[in-house]
């Protein structure tokens, strides 16, 4: 399966298993979503369970919160993460706080799916990575899958979770494990072991990272597309990096991170989002708090620049394998 099929399969299974699950968003019903993640679900489960909404993101999340209060489990789509801002008040002030402010009388068991990241010539309004805007809000969980197997298992876990989950889908990974070499032919998921997706219901638990590459020289903390960029950079530099795919940014699997950094003595954080106040800043702080006396070099961050995502200069913005590779070499010299 590719990542689109895996995500669709998770929703399909959950719609069949639990009649409180509903799926909706812009172009999600009859058409099946602009990235086809919900294709066929309305025909199979009915238009009361899977339906289109008006182009109104605060309404999508607002009605989902009301439905959650009633007892449903909405799994909604925001067409691009770049479009989520009108819904931010409903997410940050309402969904995230409802359980706490009502002392558990009401809660918001929502999943808010949205394609994230660049690399598809989407320009500044179809390429953003706003994960740090969600990890900063207490009460939310934030998930970023990097492959079809994880996407299905994490989405099932997210739909079954009783807290609101922000589910960011790196759109450049929908069809294959993109490593940043945009000049090369793309590789489909059918040629990658993590494109093997079981047909049955299974979980990838929230809050557990995965070590994608064992290594001894440096720990690279990455998620989404950057996992493959990091793999390419390690292969091309010959530096024996340990690559951790965080999978869930919050709750964060600090145990896996700490074990690895204490072993390697070096840490690099890679994300596509802009640098300043990005999630990388949090990772740097946490790593130095727990591993300071094991660090042999300053923690490095390789990220998108603090500019809007440029259309024509996409690859100058994107933190590709060359930038990650040269940072790796610099770190090893330190």
């Amino acid at each position: 399966m590719n990542m689109i099929e895996a995500i669709r399969d998770a929703m399909d299974i959950m719609l069949a298993q639990d009649d409180n699950v509903v799926v909706f968003g812009e172009d999600v019903g009859y058409f099946g979503g602009v990235f086809r993640c919900t294709a066929g679900l309305q025909a199979k489960h009915g238009k009361h369970r899977v339906f289109d909404t008006p182009i109104n993101e605060s309404g999508i999340v607002g009605v989902a919160i009301g439905m959650g209060a009633y007892g449903l489990r909405p799994c909604v789509e925001i067409q691009f993460a770049d479009y989520v801002y009108p819904a931010y008040d409903q997410i940050a002030s309402e969904a995230a706080r409802l359980r706490h402010r009502s002392n558990g009388q009401f809660y918001a068991p929502l999943v808010i799916r949205m394609p994230t990241g660049g690399g598809i010539f989407g320009g500044q309004t179809h390429s953003q990575s706003p994960e740090a805007l969600f990890t900063h809000v207490s009460g939310l969980k934030t998930v970023v899958p990097s492959n079809p197997y994880d996407a299905k298992g994490l989405l099932i876990s997210s739909i079954e979770d009783d807290d609101p989950v922000i589910f960011l889908e790196p759109k450049r990974l929908y069809n294959g494990p993109f490593d940043g070499h945009h000049e090369r032919p793309s590789i489909p998921w059918s040629k990658h072991p993590l494109g093997e997706v079981p047909e049955h219901h299974y979980h990838v638990p929230l809050g557990e990272a995965a070590v994608r590459r064992q290594g001894s020289a440096v720990t690279i903390l990455a998620y989404g597309t950057m996992v493959y960029v990091a793999e390419a950079a390690a292969a091309e530099t010959g530096i024996d990096a340990e690559i951790i795919d965080l999978r869930t940014l919050l709750p964060l699997d600090m145990a896996t991170i700490e074990t690895s950094v204490k072993k390697t003595g070096r840490c690099m954080v890679v994300h596509e989002a802009t640098l300043t106040s990005g999630f990388g800043a949090e990772l740097c702080a946490l790593v130095q708090e727990s591993c300071f006396y094991h660090l042999e070099a300053p923690i490095e961050r390789v990220t998108g620049w603090d500019t809007p995502y440029p259309h024509a200069l996409e690859w100058e913005y994107f933190p590709g394998p060359a930038r990650v590779g040269s940072a790796l070499k610099r770190m090893m010299e330190a």
């Binding site: 509903v22 009361h48 369970r49 605060s58 309404g59 607002g62 009605v63 989902a64 919160i65 009301g66 439905m67 209060a69 009633y70 007892g71 449903l72 409903q90 309402e94």
Partner: peptide
């Protein structure tokens, strides 16, 4: 808008 969502759920 949450009230509308609750009512939608009742109808669903």
């Amino acid at each position: 808008v949450q009230a509308v969502g609750w009512a939608m759920a009742s109808a669903i």
